[in-house]
Amino acid sequence: MSLFALTWAALRTAVASVPLESFARPSGCAGWLVRDLVCHLVIDAQDVLITLATPSDASPTRDAATYWEVTATPPTGDDPLDALIVRLAAAYEDPALLKFHLDDVGSAAGRAASLATLEARVSTREQILTVGDYLEAYVMEWTLHHLDLIAHLPSVAGPPADGLARSRELLEQIAGVPFPASFSDADTLLVGTGRRTPTGAEKVSLDGLAAKLPLVLG
């Protein structure tokens, strides 16, 4: 819970610090501008609220690592849902409204998470998780999207070190093997999820793991 709160607060603070004119700049998500990414975060916050309000008595079917559906195809922005996000973001017109909406819904999601019982079970995407595992999965969601936010905004603060470290651990669980120790946590996440192409030297370090990449999380 503490990492969920830490990473979510850091991401919302980073969005709040982005100049309005920078909402029209590219993000680290293919096909999305910063405004599109922030609109997606509003939807994410709504998903957190919906999931925490959807209890289940069934046994868990997923945990924080297996929550993710993994493919090898990076998004292009052409997916119908991705395209819908772009249209929704454009409808805001004034980026200040997006900031306000994220702060409003995002704060509510944070409060709901702080009040939740970690051992309770919830249903989402036709799967059952404990609240603790669900919130831990979102540590990776917040951390990856924080990296997306700052991809072309070097003046904006990056994600917390603890969130980066835990997200790396989750990605290594998904991969089934550790990434090279020479990779920073941020580079592990960027290269591992296909957000950045590995350099020649990095490919050598990755060795057999390179054939498994990218691990595109959905």
Rank of each mutant, 00 (worst) to 15 (best):
E119F: 09
I174H: 05
V131R: 01
E141I: 03
L88A: 14
V105A: 06
A175Y: 01
V86W: 08
L153Q: 06
M140I: 02
I174N: 06
G158S: 07
D78G: 02
D103E: 13
A89T: 10
A157D: 09
P80H: 12
I150Q: 08
P160R: 05
D133A: 03
K99I: 05
E172R: 05
S114Q: 15
I150A: 06
R111I: 12
E93L: 15
R168I: 01
R87K: 13
P178I: 05
A109L: 04
A151Y: 00
A161E: 13
E126K: 09
D162A: 14
G132L: 02
D133Y: 02
D104K: 09
L153C: 05
H146Y: 08
L84A: 12
R121A: 10
L84Q: 08
L144I: 10
A96W: 14
V177W: 03
Y92I: 13
L102C: 06
Y138W: 11
A151C: 05
P160N: 05
E172W: 07
A83I: 10
L135S: 00
D78S: 06
A83T: 14
I85R: 07
L171A: 01
V177L: 11
Y92E: 15
Q173R: 14
Y92N: 10
S107R: 12
S155K: 04
V122D: 03
A161F: 06
A108F: 08
D94A: 15
S107V: 13
R121K: 15
E172L: 08
A120P: 11
S167D: 00
R87S: 14
L170F: 07
R87M: 11
L88V: 13
P160C: 07
A90G: 08
A151H: 12
P180M: 02
E141N: 04
T130Q: 01
F179E: 00
E136Y: 06
P178K: 06
R168C: 00
A175M: 07
A108I: 10
Y92R: 15
R121L: 09
K99A: 13
D78A: 04
V86R: 06
L135H: 02
W142V: 04
D82V: 03
D94P: 14
A108K: 09
V139F: 00
M140L: 11
I85F: 10
H145Q: 02
K99H: 13
L118F: 04
E126F: 10
